[in-house]
């Protein structure tokens, strides 16, 4: 057996700590240890983006970093955006615009969209595509995902 390491971090605004196997990835820490299964795992190689979370306000693919590397950081997962079943505006837009089919990629996609909107930049439809291209979806053909994000930007007067 390997020695355990202690990880302390802020998870969706609350302190969370656990003793873990040092080789544990952040995505497994979030899902298996913290029990927040909204963050999904699609590839474990950083290609699909299903495991995207916010780390200190920036998107990270949580399968590409060790939980121990996240020690002391502030992590936000999909569960941190909604209040229980009360959705935040991005989640509402995804729901309303049918940007969800099987829904497996959705949490990572919404976290990326959240980050994109948090930048406060004016963007075109093409630029939305660029920004979201690290998140794969196999069901929707992406049309409604772009529409949802476009609508959010338009509401903020940030659509070019």
């Amino acid at each position: 057996m390997v020695n355990k390491v202690k990880v302390n971090l802020k998870l969706n605004g609350e302190r969370f700590s656990a003793e873990i196997d040092p080789r544990m990835l952040l995505c497994d820490f979030i899902r298996d240890v913290a029990g927040l299964t909204g963050t999904h795992i699609g590839c474990m190689t950083g290609n699909c983006g299903a495991c995207t979370v916010l780390m200190n306000g920036r998107t990270v693919k949580s399968c590409t970093i060790l939980a121990a590397q996240a020690n002391g950081s502030d992590i936000t997962t999909i569960e941190g955006l909604s209040k229980g079943l009360e959705l935040n505006p991005i989640q509402r837009a995804f729901h309303k615009r049918y940007a969800v089919q099987c829904g497996y990629c959705t949490p990572g996609m919404i976290i990326t969209a959240h980050y994109l909107l948090s930048l406060g930049k004016t963007l075109s439809r093409q630029e939305i595509r660029e920004h979201i291209s690290g998140n794969l979806c196999r069901c929707t053909g992406y049309q409604n995902i772009i529409d949802a994000i476009e609508e959010l930007l338009r509401d903020k007067g940030l659509l070019r």
Partner: peptide, 14 residues
């Protein structure tokens, strides 16, 4: 709007 999309967007869908 799809009802299952609600819980899927919230991260609560299992």
């Amino acid at each position: 709007a799809r009802r299952d999309a609600y819980e899927k967007a919230s991260g609560a869908a299992v």
